[in-house]
Amino acid sequence: MTKVKICGLMDKQTVDEVCRLGADYIGFVFAKSKREVSPEQVRLLTEDVPSSIKKVGVFVSPTIGQLQMVIEKAGLDLVQIHGEFPEGTCSVPMIQAKSVKGNERNLATTADFLLLDAPPKEYYGGNGEPFSWETIQPNTLPQEKLFVAGGLTVANVQQAIAYFQPFGVDVSSGVETNGVKDLAKIQAFINQVKEYDHVPTTR
């Protein structure tokens, strides 16, 4: 079953609805971004989140000390790192995000999970643009711990799953309208993932 991560959440009503709609992972941005939130906010936003739904903090080039401080304040279950990956041991599983610019030769990771994303623009992640999937050979990747992000929408998420066969898919701007999370788009996105997983086929 392909996991779904909805990222860039900022208000409690949306967090609660995303959980009800069937997300497996919910993401909160602790780096410079139009979706940036504080650890204290996230603690309040997630007070009713079931333990089965994992809370992910998104960071850019943090230190282990910075990670641990936010993990404890926000109550995170995982951390997702863009930019420089920190050295040291973390108390929760780590997702290493790697930008795919084309003809990548080094997508190996020592992290618990690998996330493929489009190259950064003003910010890392959440830019709504896909990377060139065909530059990646999925069978060379650790698909059992792979997340795919970058420009995913209702229209292309099934193709992404078919191509990469990932552990999970990650979406932020692809389920927004005018920069705000759109619950109808989130429901449709999750439905597309579940539909792919449940339809028997000779893919």
Rank of each mutant, 00 (worst) to 15 (best):
S51P: 01
S51H: 11
I53N: 01
K54N: 06
K55N: 03
G57M: 09
V60E: 05
V60I: 13
P62G: 08
T63V: 04
T63N: 03
T63M: 00
Q66I: 09
M69I: 10
I71C: 11
I71N: 09
A74R: 01
V79R: 05
V79E: 07
I81P: 08
T89D: 11
P93E: 09
M94E: 06
M94K: 15
Q96P: 02
Q96N: 11
R105I: 14
R105W: 07
A108H: 14
T110F: 10
F113V: 09
L115C: 05
L116E: 05
L116G: 11
P119Q: 12
E122W: 00
E122H: 05
G126V: 12
N127R: 11
G128R: 00
P130R: 13
P142M: 07
E144T: 13
E144K: 14
K145I: 14
L146A: 06
L146C: 03
F147W: 13
V148C: 11
A149F: 00
G151L: 08
Q159C: 04
A162Y: 12
F167E: 06
G168F: 04
S172E: 14
S173W: 07
V175Q: 02
T177F: 06
N178L: 15
D182A: 03
A184W: 05
K185W: 03
F189Q: 10
F189V: 06
